Amino acid sequence: MKNKAAVGLLIAVVIAVVGCKTQKGKLEFLHPDSGKRIAYGEQVKLTLNFPNVAVDSVVYSIDGNVFETKRDTSSVVFDTKGYGLGDRSLSARVYVEGKEDIAYSNVMVLPPNAQNYGFEVVNTFPHDSESFTQGLQYQNGVMYESSGRYEKSQLRKIDLQTGKALKSIKLDDKYFAEGMTIVDDKIVLLTWMENVAFIYSKDNLQQVGSFSYGASKEGWGLTYDGKQMIKSDGSNRLYFLNKTTGAEESSIGVYDENGAVGQLNELEYIDGKVYANVYQQEVIVIINPESGAVEGRINLVGMYNENRKPVDNELNGIAYDHQAKRLFVTGKLWSKLFEIKLVAR
């Protein structure tokens, strides 16, 4: 019995040792751990567990692009500032005597915590409770608004003080109007799933052109930064469009300290930042359009409670008076439009 026990113990030890050697010989990332969240701007040391052999070379890549090649097993540094926010795929190809082995990992690069804001109502104005607000913009004393829904979509010029339409046009019944923006002397209006945007004269609202969408097939929000139009499609991406042709020229992902921020809806460009309604939330996020980082978050819970429905009654509509520095917000089928002031928390 003793001999059998000794043999069993010996076998167990051999298995443990072999298992340990196999694990030690596995090419893998020791740091960072796969799925690790990393602050934007951080310099991350990439460290591999190498097999116990002399390597010919190690080729490190991020998102499939080579960023460093080494002839030894020392660590390399990944500077997150050079690669932007979001998921980053890491790989290391190790070459030994003509043979290749590959290790993979991934990290999520996220911005610092956003500044949180509450609000203070400065003024209240009447708003058409039949307007299914999708786009809103203020310019030279006039509020411009697009109202959605099939068979009911409109584009209107509105008197701020009364909420009455100064001029309006109705879209064809097959179009669902979405976000809009003013580009010089034109108004550009998105449609939801019809893959087309219409261009109108700002003065008389006569249609003067149109363009089809690119990769972002749905139209949600639209704004203009003075050089390009910026479009949302309900995802966490912002698309930058040519101001004349509407062609997509670039895009960027939007992230806060918790991850991707999706459902981006109506947009407004204010002092270098993009303000975006988050669909079905009483929240506006303030986005840096260069990095995609959410730098601010405005909580508007409780601002409007008149017979609110759980759907089709959402906060949606941001406009800004650039001269008087006034911020306006409203929502779908709301009877009021609010001028608000942000209160830092």
Rank of each mutant, 00 (worst) to 15 (best):
L238I: 12
D101N: 04
K157F: 02
V285W: 08
A293Q: 11
Q134D: 07
I182K: 08
T47P: 00
D312V: 09
Y320N: 10
E28H: 08
E249A: 12
S34F: 01
E257F: 03
K186E: 15
F132G: 10
H31C: 00
G25A: 13
Y304W: 08
P310G: 05
P310F: 04
I252V: 14
K167A: 14
N313F: 13
S153Y: 11
S91H: 09
E290V: 13
T244R: 06
G98I: 03
S74D: 13
G234V: 07
S291W: 11
V13R: 00
Q161T: 03
E145S: 09
G82E: 14
L238Y: 03
A6N: 06
N277V: 07
Y279E: 04
G331C: 05
L9Q: 00
Y320M: 05
T22R: 13
D233H: 06
Y269N: 06
V13C: 08
T330D: 09
T73A: 06
N316E: 10
I187V: 14
T22C: 13
N195A: 12
P112M: 07
I11F: 06
D256E: 01
K325P: 03
A92E: 11
G19S: 13
K99P: 00
S216V: 02
D321G: 02
L222T: 00
I169D: 04
S146G: 09
L155V: 15
Y60Q: 09
W220E: 03
G64Y: 06
Y95G: 00
G82M: 09
K167I: 00
K227A: 12
A344R: 13
T80M: 07
R88G: 03
L136P: 01
A260K: 15
I284N: 05
S201Q: 15
N65Y: 02
T22M: 15
Y200K: 12
I158E: 00
L155Q: 10
S89N: 14
T244Q: 12
I286F: 02
E290A: 15
S146A: 08
N258M: 08
S235R: 02
K231P: 03
K273L: 11
M1L: 03
E339K: 07
G317V: 06
K70F: 05
R88Q: 15
R156T: 07
A6L: 14
E97D: 13
D312Y: 14
K24Q: 15
V77A: 04
Q207L: 01
T162Y: 00
T69Q: 11
V122S: 11
S216I: 01
T73C: 10
T191D: 07
Y138S: 01
M1C: 01
G219W: 11
G163W: 02
A12D: 00
K81F: 09
S129E: 14
Q139D: 13
S34P: 03
S232C: 06
G8R: 01
Q263C: 03
A39E: 14
G19F: 10
C20Q: 07
S153K: 12
I340D: 09
K227P: 02
